[in-house]
Simulated assay, not measured.
Amino acid sequence: MLTPDEVLVVGRIVSVHGVKGWVKVYSHTDPMENIFDYQPWHLLEGGVWKPVKLTGKRRQGKGLVAGFEGYEDRDRAARELVGRDIAVPRSQLPESGDGEYYWRDLIGLRVKLGDGRDLGRVHGLMETGANDVLVVRGDADSLDRQERLLPWTPGEVVSAVDLDAGELRVDWDPDF
């Protein structure tokens, strides 16, 4: 069994599909089919990440579907899986390249301006058409308690990322 620190959530089971116990899968990977490259999948059950074995997988229309060993019945077994996150061991993921980061690594970093003023912590990220966006929430240790949306544009708004120090430096007007 894996601990929460050892897994990375890569998708979610969103509904049942067909009559043979298959499910529709929402993938957080890009491209979405990459989720199938990581095996075994782990599903959260009773607070524990348990491995499951895929019996089949494919693209279906604009989405993905998969079948699991032991879940061949749509009405009972497969319905139990709906809403569960899909995770893989973090060790399976390739190392991020220079200047590349997994979103999970950015969440929780302190966000500071060049002069050292603190804007808060990265609460999450959003994917938009132009560029990804950091959701930064102020807290008791920051300049204010404001939530800010900062574009993830390394070399422009984002000037430095120091994972070891737990810090992200930005060039941003805090009044914006």
Rank of each mutant, 00 (worst) to 15 (best):
M1F: 01
M1K: 04
L2K: 09
T3S: 15
T3N: 07
T3I: 05
P4C: 06
E6M: 05
E6D: 14
L8F: 05
V10D: 01
G11M: 01
R12T: 15
V14M: 00
S15H: 03
G18R: 07
V19P: 01
K20H: 15
K24N: 12
Y26E: 15
T29E: 15
D30M: 11
M32K: 14
I35E: 10
D37L: 14
P40N: 07
P40Y: 06
L43C: 07
L44R: 12
E45K: 09
V48C: 10
V48M: 15
W49G: 08
K53R: 13
L54N: 02
G56T: 13
K57C: 03
K57L: 05
R58N: 10
R59A: 12
Q60P: 03
G61T: 04
G63V: 10
G63S: 11
G63E: 08
L64P: 12
L64T: 11
V65E: 13
V65S: 11
A66C: 06
F68R: 05
F68W: 01
F68E: 00
E69D: 15
G70H: 03
E72W: 03
E72V: 12
R74C: 07
A78W: 08
R79N: 05
V82T: 08
V82N: 03
A87R: 05
P89G: 00
R90G: 09
R90V: 07
R90Q: 09
S91P: 00
S91L: 07
S91E: 12
S91I: 11
L93I: 09
P94Y: 06
D98T: 12
E100G: 00
E100L: 12
E100I: 06
E100D: 14
Y102T: 12
Y102V: 13
Y102W: 13
W103R: 10
R104H: 10
R104A: 12
D105P: 00
D105L: 02
L106I: 00
L106P: 02
I107P: 05
L109T: 01
K112N: 00
K112F: 00
L113E: 06
G114Q: 11
D118I: 13
L119I: 11
G120M: 06
V122M: 12
V122Y: 10
V122S: 03
H123S: 11
H123Y: 12
L125A: 02
E127K: 14
G129R: 13
N131H: 14
D132Q: 10
V133C: 10
V133L: 14
L134F: 15
V136A: 01
V136L: 08
R137K: 15
G138S: 09
D139A: 06
D139W: 10
A140H: 07
D141H: 12
D141Q: 15
S142G: 04
D144A: 04
Q146N: 13
L150H: 06
L150T: 01
T153V: 06
P154E: 01
G155M: 07
V157C: 00
V158M: 08
V158H: 00
V158W: 05
A160C: 01
A160Y: 08
V161R: 01
D162Y: 03
D162L: 05
D164T: 15
D164C: 03
A165H: 00
A165T: 04
A165D: 09
G166S: 02
G166I: 03
E167K: 12
E167T: 09
R169K: 12
V170S: 08
D171V: 13
D171P: 02
D173L: 10
P174Q: 13
D175E: 15
F176R: 15
